[in-house]
C-alpha cells in the first residue's frame, strides 16, 4: 500500500537487495504509525471502555469520504472541513453510545455495530458510488540514496500520530476528566461513590475516542484512495494489532502497529502482495494460540476479563 517501494529485488545484486529491504523497513515504520493510531483508538474503545465496536472501519471510511467530498466537490476550505469532520464524528460517537452501544451485553453490541457497519458501507455505496476517489496529491519525496526515500506526507502523518497518542495518554493521566475516565474503567461503582457521573464519563470517553478516528481518517485521505470497502481491511488490521499487543494497551498497540507495518511491507516486497493477507492472518492466529494475552502484556488476567 505505500506509494513508493517501486524498487524490486534483482537476483545476485546484494547491494540492491539490501537497500530495497531497508527501504521496505523505513516505509513500513512510517505506515506503522498510522496503523498504530487507528488501532490505539480501537484498543481504547474495546479494551478500556468495553465497547466492542465493529463499525469502526466503516466509520474511518465514512470520515474519509466526508473529508474528500466537501473539499473536492463543494470547494470548502480545509480548516472548515476539519472542524466539520471532527464535529460529525463526535456526534456520531455520542449517538452510537446512546443507541447501539447502550446494552452492556457484548454479543448485542457486536451484532448491532456489525449491522451499523453494513448500513454505513451500503449507504456510502448508494450515495458516493463505489467509484474509488482520490485527491491525487503528488507527494514530495526525500531521497537518502537512490533507492531509499521517504514521503514527506508519510513522515508528517507518522509524527502527528505519535504526538496525538502521547497527548491522549497525557490527557488520561494528568487532567481530572482523564483520571475520571480511568477510574470509571477500573471500578464503576467506587467511581460513582466518589462523585463521578460514570455514564456521562463513558459517553464523553467514547466521543473522545471518535476524535482519534476522525484525525486518522483525515490523514488516511491524504495518502490513499477511498472506496466503500476500504474500512474493512483497516478494521481487520486494527484487530490483529490490538490482539497481538494485548487489548487495552495503547503504547503496546502503537509499537505493535510499527511491527505489523514493517512485516506487511516486507511481505509485500519479498513474497508479493498476493499472499499478504493470508500470511498476516495466519500470524495472527498463531499469536492467538501461543500468547493470547498479547505480546506486550505480562499479566494473563488482563485478557480474561474481556
Amino acid at each position: 500500500m505505500p506509494r513508493c517501494s517501486s524498487c524490486c529485488i534483482e537476483r545476485g545484486d546484494v547491494l540492491v537487495t539490501l537497500t530495497a529491504i531497508i527501504s521496505y523497513i523505513v516505509n513500513g515504520i512510517l505506515m506503522g504509525g498510522l496503523y498504530g493510531l487507528t488501532s490505539a483508538a480501537w484498543s481504547f474503545q474495546c479494551g478500556a471502555l468495553k465497547f466492542a465496536n465493529f463499525a469502526y472501519g466503516a466509520c474511518i471510511m465514512f470520515t474519509m469520504y466526508l473529508t474528500y467530498w466537501p473539499i473536492a466537490m463543494w470547494g470548502w476550505p480545509l480548516p472548515l472541513t476539519i472542524v466539520f469532520v471532527l464535529a460529525f464524528n463526535v456526534v456520531l460517537g455520542w449517538v452510537m453510545r446512546k443507541t447501539v452501544l447502550r446494552p452492556n451485553n457484548r454479543n448485542t453490541q457486536i451484532l448491532c455495530t456489525m449491522g451499523l457497519q453494513l448500513i454505513i458501507i451500503n449507504l456510502a455505496n448508494f450515495f458516493f458510488t463505489s467509484y474509488p476517489r482520490d485527491f491525487g496529491l503528488l507527494e514530495k519525496r526525500f531521497y537518502f540514496t537512490e533507492n531509499i526515500s521517504i514521503g514527506l506526507t508519510q513522515l508528517f502523518c507518522f509524527v502527528l500520530s505519535g504526538a496525538i497518542l502521547i497527548g491522549f495518554q497525557l490527557f488520561l493521566n494528568k487532567t481530572w476528566t482523564g483520571r475520571a475516565i480511568r477510574a470509571v474503567v477500573q471500578n464503576r461503582d467506587v467511581a460513582s461513590l466518589m462523585g463521578v457521573k460514570s455514564e456521562r464519563i463513558l459517553d464523553l470517553a467514547f466521543s473522545i475516542s471518535y476524535i482519534m478516528i476522525a484525525i486518522a481518517g483525515i490523514m488516511l485521505m491524504t495518502m490513499f484512495t477511498v472506496d466503500p470497502n476500504f474500512g474493512t481491511t483497516w478494521q481487520s488490521y486494527a484487530f490483529i494489532i490490538c490482539i497481538s499487543a494485548g487489548i487495552g494497551n495503547l503504547y503496546g498497540a502503537f509499537l505493535s502497529g510499527l511491527i505489523i507495518g514493517v512485516v506487511s511491507s516486507l511481505i509485500k516486497g519479498i513474497v508479493g502482495p498476493f499472499y499478504h493477507d493470508p500470511i498476516l492472518y495466519a500470524m495472527f492466529v498463531i499469536i492467538l494460540l501461543l500468547r493470547p494475552y498479547g505480546i506486550f502484556n505480562k499479566a494473563e488476567n488482563v485478557a480474561r476479563t474481556i
Binding site: 466492542a52 457484548r106 457486536i110 481487520s236 493477507d277 492472518y281 494475552y293
Partner: peptide, 26 residues
C-alpha cells in the same frame, strides 16, 4: 475451538474473523 476456549468470548470472535479472512482471500 482451541483459540476460542482458551480465553473467553471476544477472542473466539477474533479467531473466527482471522481464519475466515484467510480462507476468503485464498
Amino acid at each position: 475451538g482451541m483459540v476460542g476456549s482458551k480465553l473467553s468470548g471476544l477472542y473466539f470472535t477474533m479467531a473466527l474473523i482471522g481464519i475466515h479472512s484467510i480462507f476468503y482471500t485464498l
